[in-house]
């Protein structure tokens, strides 16, 4: 393993392309952290990523590793196909909340249930960003979105789905953790979680899942600073930030 590069260098696993993400968006931060992990584990040249449909759809312009598109929600199934065909490669999917927890819930749950030795990175920012800030499965109760204009009403729209908790009911996953990208501490924690997840795969241990509570200032309708507070306070209150599964064993809160 390579020594982590110091602070503000561009990871070798990122291309030179300027990212299209909004100011204050969590995607660009997670991209950088993920690229650092690929660098540090020296796996860039044997990694195949799967991009979602959603804001991160252009991930293949930003990562300097092979990346495939997937239909909306199907990333875990596509990653399954790649990993089964090439078991010695490192395969990850990178998905948002609509992609992973709504249309792709089936694929997500069953890939985890089979214990596919892939790494699933779940960016939870409580909204469909790309399509204009619609309600997601993880939208908080009362939260205003384009399709819940008077706030999400649990009586008719359901409550936010907690994916880590849901997947933790399964036997096969090896590593499940939720982190919050709510500032410097959150960046450090996210990097550590991503590193653990990829190490899990590199050492052939099994399925790893990292949920990142992530800011979307555009659709939170607030400043980047306030969006970090939303993540660290409102979101973290609904989605407990902790390790759920470690070395295949459930971790109790």
């Amino acid at each position: 393993m390579k020594t982590p590069t110091s602070g503000y260098q561009r990871p070798a696993s990122l291309t030179d392309a300027a990212m299209h993400y909004c100011a204050g968006c969590g995607h660009s931060s997670v991209h950088k952290l993920l690229a650092e992990v690929l660098d540090e584990l020296e796996i860039r040249e044997r990694t195949v990523g799967v991009a979602p449909v959603g804001c991160a759809v252009f991930a293949y312009f930003y990562f300097k590793c092979d990346i495939s598109e997937a239909a909306h929600g199907r990333a875990a199934a596509v990653a399954t196909g790649i990993k089964r065909a090439l078991p010695d490669r490192i395969v990850f999917s990178y998905q948002g909340d609509g992609d992973l927890a709504a249309i792709g819930l089936t694929e997500t749950v069953h890939a985890a249930n089979r214990g596919e030795p892939i790494t699933v990175i779940f960016i939870n920012n409580t909204v469909y960003g790309m399509t204009g800030g619609q309600m997601a499965p993880t939208t908080l109760a009362g939260q205003i979105t384009a399709t819940s204009p008077t706030g999400r009403n649990p009586a008719t729209m359901g409550c936010p789905i907690r994916m880590c908790e849901l997947l933790n009911t399964l036997e096969q996953p090896y590593y499940i953790e939720r982190v919050a990208l709510d500032g410097h501490g959150g960046m450090v924690a996210t990097k550590k979680a991503l590193l653990t997840a990829f190490q899990t795969q590199v050492s052939g241990k099994g399925y790893s899942f990292v949920e990142v509570l992530s800011p979307c200032p555009t659709h939170f309708r607030c400043s980047p600073q306030d969006s970090l507070k939303f993540v660290g306070q409102k979101m973290a209150a609904q989605f407990p930030v902790r390790i759920f599964r470690k070395e295949g064993v459930p971790v109790h809160a």
Binding site: A77, G81, R84, L86, E107
Partner: peptide, 26 residues
């Protein structure tokens, strides 16, 4: 060789997509 009973037809064809992406006959 690889056999998976997928969770749905949608998942099955997506797995074919993935295997084909990786260069396998699927």
């Amino acid at each position: 060789r690889v056999f998976i009973q997928a969770e749905s037809e949608v998942a099955a064809i997506s797995m074919v997509f993935g295997a084909s992406v990786a260069g396998a006959r699927a």
